[in-house]
Write a protein that binds this DNA or RNA. Structure first.
Length: 916
RNA sequence: GCCCGGGUGGUGGAAUGGUAUACACGAAGGUCUUAAAAACCUUUGCCGCAAGGAUUGCGGGUUCGAAUCCCGCCCCGGGCACCA
């Protein structure tokens, strides 16, 4: 049937794709403007860090599907913003530059150019005139401007925060560079050091960040992760006075006495609080520890600080702690209760101190049992239940016991809670009661508060490759923001990019950059030498794309108003909390500053699945060091007892000993397949089609060469079929088709029906991100066209058949255009049409043509399929039921006196006969 | 332990209350060819010669009808983890 000897019958994807790639660039096809009467649509990929390795076919799993969605939107008449840029600041680029001994300012643009080349290679429709690079001054000027905006709004502040200090390399490490408590290069145990650093006050927005989640179309899983990260919990802040303890060697001990605030979600169990626990790092520990306990406390503190990481990973956590010698006053019972320190209380959550209620909290229970601390039941499940009889904490159930306040108690003498159930309502009543106590001296015992797990956002990095923080420290004026007209604070060149041995950024080593006059008083000032972490740059980039070359503002309000917010955002689920939360925070700040008119940056979010490659590795023993060798591109934990083979190991270890596993495709694992080699071998269109067809967008995919071969096979096949039918194309088919319709055979009407059903399905599936079924629909249509071509044989088609074929020949390139744009444009040209399918309207779906003229009705007996009926559309329900009951198989089932009890009809689908 | 996904033929997957296995891979047979490849055609989830039967991780439930909804359990992947 086919004849590949004719050159035009061969699918010469190299010639086709090279030609159209060039032509799209020459005609500036993907350029968009902020004007016109079309509705806008903003679709965005998470912008990548351009690594030296270039993109892998894994990246195509992200960029190609969004490109398909964009191309469809353009054809549907939207003005589509589809930009791309580079998340160029940050550690990966810095580490790469250090490793290669290169200047990141030169290296990053080279890598970016390579990325751009590869993205053009696979035919992504980016408007490159809007390319941004977060490491260029024209971009980071505005990152700095936004820092100052937050500073002015009281949302940027300097606080003390711990960094990971590598005592051997004498550098600050990021969390990613700490593996198993050790520095990734030196292998030395990492220490905590506290230094002043800059924070953004994201916690002020905790409730709004929570509420906003209900207004966006994101996956429930991602929303849930953000909710948990924010970690809102309602409870009470309760104050405990310290009534004895260490004098700290000072004579005026009473003045040192303070109170301890705790956060508790269970203030209703206050009567059962028989001790308190402070985190070992709690600042009050020094003050309250008695001289006798000092040595023991110091030892415990030291032990927790050094051994935390190791112990956490080793044994099951046994509760340990040390008594400080101090006591606090339980405000409702008046009893003195001992104050302990223990590492199960975390400094970073709540107030770093808890009231411990062993009767109703399992951790407190274990601790009390171990150290012989009394247990008092607040809730009892039976009248005569005693603390000695319980073997574990009772967090739920029971009713409240009766408590008589002792003489020393602050609380009022009445106790209105006896008999109340253990539930949220009771907690509320107790909080209200606590708030009413001690109001005379203005000192409430407790008050209802909301606590969040969310911490303020640490933006300082003691690193070179980032946007300098636009702050000057003046001896006289303190912290002074750099005036806006002096922005950007340019990142200077340095001799050495690696972190310094002092823990400061390399910028601190350039006196001529650091020393400046104070903008306020003119006195001696020092520039802030910390830079901003990469997540700051990426928290607003989506807005820069709306107006990427604006020299007077981060973006014009008009451009942002026209384009933003982003209608469709696509990227990896690994950003579920960090980037996606920070961008939302920035957007709310900009909203409050009156700069943007919306509060949520990303209306619809889709997360693509990972791409796995079958990768050789070797078994490792648990003792076989897990210290990484530093050239890891990503920092995935090594899989339990297995490690990827290094290139040299592939030579030394015989293949029979290789252990294969599916792991994420990445440069560090040596399993990357690049789009370059695939495009060379099969073409970009085949690569696009394969990535879409192989699995649903969100699903993890196992890469196989077989898969792309099958995509290529389809491309060759559809090319051949279309090419063989093309001689029958008549451009005037729209005029001739109406008259031709009555002449068509059933088969031919069936082909036309399939065509219009496919128009409907492909459009709908792409909008729903169901690319795999859209491709399947195109394959089905191709199969029908193929069958029709075979049926036609060498016969000359009638004029009616020409009209029919012409409609298909012209529609197919348009239907395939979003998915295989190069092929589609080549076909378009072969039909004698100018321009690109990209600028053509999406085909109109004709409901009449798509309608079936016969339907299959399934006949069931008691829900079991018995027969099928082919009936013409429009057959009455009564007629269908009569036919169903007359079916041979139904009649057989009804034999033996079984009675028809009910007949259920679903129009157009089935008849279910319920028999006794 | 908690949270979020998921479990359907030999394989990737389709079907989200109404014909389970679309589409594709793989496999088998055929046509063409000196031959091979490619292409094209046919068959192909399981048991059974067949009629027919069982079947969507396991067990129960709701329903005329469940892969789909509900309850309990098992397994796999991902995330968080002493959160007071």
């Amino acid at each position: 049937m086919s004849d590949d000897s004719k050159p035009e019958n061969r699918y010469d994807f190299r010639a086709i794709e090279t030609k159209w790639r060039q032509r799209w660039v020459e005609t500036d096809l993907f350029r968009v403007d902020d004007t016109g009467d079309k509705p806008k649509y903003y679709a965005l990929d998470m912008f990548p860090y351009p690594s030296g390795a270039g993109i892998s076919v894994g990246h195509c799993r992200n960029y190609v599907p969004l490109d398909v969605a964009c191309r469809l939107k353009v054809m549907q008449g939207f003005n589509v913003l589809h930009p791309m840029g580079w998340d160029a600041f940050g550690q990966p680029a810095e580490n790469e530059a250090i490793k290669r001994g290169r200047n990141p300012k030169e290296m990053v643009p080279e890598y970016a150019a390579n990325y751009k080349r590869q993205l053009e290679l696979v035919g992504i429709s980016y408007d490159w005139s809007r390319e941004v690079n977060s490491s260029l001054p024209d971009y980071y000027k505005w990152t700095q401007w936004l820092f100052l905006l937050l500073y002015k709004r009281g949302l940027a502040y300097r606080g003390s925060a711990a960094v990971n200090w590598d005592p051997v390399d004498k550098t600050v490490l990021s969390n990613e560079e700490v593996v198993g408590g050790r520095g990734w290069r030196s292998g030395a145990l990492v220490e905590k050091r506290f230094i002043p650093q800059w924070f953004f006050k994201i916690t002020d927005y905790a409730d709004r960040l929570l509420a906003g989640l209900d207004t966006v179309q994101w996956g429930e899983g991602i929303k849930q992760q953000q909710r948990e990260w924010i970690g809102r919990s309602e409870g009470a802040d309760v104050e405990f006075e310290i009534i004895g303890g260490g004098t700290n060697g000072s004579a005026n001990a009473p003045e040192l006495m303070e109170s301890i605030h705790v956060f508790t979600t269970r203030p209703d169990t206050l009567w059962g609080a028989t001790f308190m626990v402070l985190a070992p790092e709690h600042p009050l520990v020094e003050q309250i520890t008695t001289p006798e306990q000092r040595a023991e406390v110091a030892e415990y503190k030291d032990k927790t600080q050094r051994a935390t990481e190791i112990e956490r990973q080793s044994t099951e956590r046994v509760k340990t702690g040390v008594f400080t010698g101090a006591y606090a006053d339980n405000p409702v019972t008046g009893e003195p209760i001992p104050i302990w320190i223990a590492d199960y209380v975390l400094m970073g959550y709540g107030t770093g101190a808890i009231m411990a209620v062993p009767a109703h909290d399992q951790r407190d229970f274990e601790f009390a049992k171990k150290y012989g601390i009394p247990i008092v039941l607040v809730y009892k499940t039976s009248e005569d239940q005693t603390a000695d009889s319980v073997t574990e904490a009772l967090p739920t159930g029971g009713v409240m016991a009766s408590f008589q306040p002792s003489a020393g108690a602050k609380a009022g003498s009445d106790f209105p809670f006896a008999g109340l159930p253990n539930n949220k309502e009771t907690v509320g009543k107790v909080i209200a009661w606590l708030e009413g106590l001690g109001q005379e001296d203005g000192n409430k015992v407790g008050k209802g508060v909301v606590n969040y797990r969310l911490r303020d956002w640490l933006v300082s990095r003691q690193r070179y490759w980032g946007a300098p923080i636009p702050i000057i420290h003046c001896e006289n004026c303190g912290v002074v923001p750099v005036p806006e007209d002096q922005l950007p604070v340019l990142l200077p060149d340095v001799a050495q990019y690696a972190p310094t041995g002092t823990g400061e950024s390399p910028l601190a080593g350039i006196p001529e950059w650091v020393n400046v006059a104070c903008p306020t008083c003119g006195g001696a000032g020092r520039r802030e030498t910390d830079t901003m972490g990469g997540t700051v740059c990426s928290s607003w980039y989506y807005l820069r794309f709306t107006d990427p070359h604006n020299a007077d503002a981060p973006f014009s309000e008009a451009a942002a108003k026209y384009w933003a917010p982003v209608d469709l955002y696509a990227g990896g689920a690994e950003h579920a909390v960090s980037h996606l939360l920070y961008s939302r925070f920035f957007t709310k700040v900009l909203h409050d500053a009156g700069i943007v008119d919306f509060e949520e940056p990303f209306q619809r979010l889709r997360n693509q699945g990972m791409l796995l490659a079958y990768t050789p590795g070797r078994e490792i023993k648990p003792t076989d060091g897990t210290v990484l060798d530093g050239d890891e591109e990503e920092t995935d934990e090594p899989l339990d007892n297995w490690k990827v083979l290094k290139p040299e190991e592939k030579l030394t270890i015989p293949e029979s000993q290789w252990v294969w596993r599916w792991v994420k495709m990445s440069k560090s694992k040596g399993n990357v397949i690049t789009p370059d080699e695939m495009a060379e071998k099969y073409g970009a269109d085949s690569l696009r089609l394969f990535g879409l067809f192989v699995a649903p967008f969100e699903e993890t995919v196992q890469w196989s060469d077989k898969g792309i071969e099958s995509a290529f096979k389809f491309m060759s096949r559809v090319w051949r079929i279309w090419t063989e039918l093309r001689p029958h194309y008549a451009p005037n088919w729209r005029e001739t088709l109406p008259a031709a319709l009555p002449e068509l055979s059933d088969t031919e009407r069936g082909l036309r029906r399939k065509l219009h059903q496919t128009i409907r399905k492909v459009g709908g599936d792409i909008e729903d991100f169901r690319f795999n079924t859209a491709v399947a629909a195109l394959m089905e249509l191709t199969n029908e066209l193929s069958a029709y071509r075979n049926a036609l044989g060498g016969n000359t088609p009638t004029p009616a058949q020409v009209s029919l074929l012409s409609e298909s020949l012209e529609t197919l390139p348009l239907l395939m255009s979003p998915i295989t744009p190069h092929l589609s444009d080549e076909w378009w040209e072969l039909l004698g049409k100018p321009g690109s399918t990209f600028k053509q309207p999406w085909p109109q779906f004709d409901p009449e043509a798509a309608a079936e003229d016969a339907i299959t009705i399934v006949v069931q007996v008691n829900g079991k399929m018995r027969d099928r009926l082919e009936v013409p559309v429009g057959t009455s329900q009564e007629e269908i039921e009569r036919l169903a009951l007359a079916c041979e198989k139904v009649v057989a089932d009804l034999a033996g006196g079984r009675q028809v009890r009910k007949v259920i009809s679903v129009p157009g689908r089935l008849v279910n006969i319920v028999v006794s």
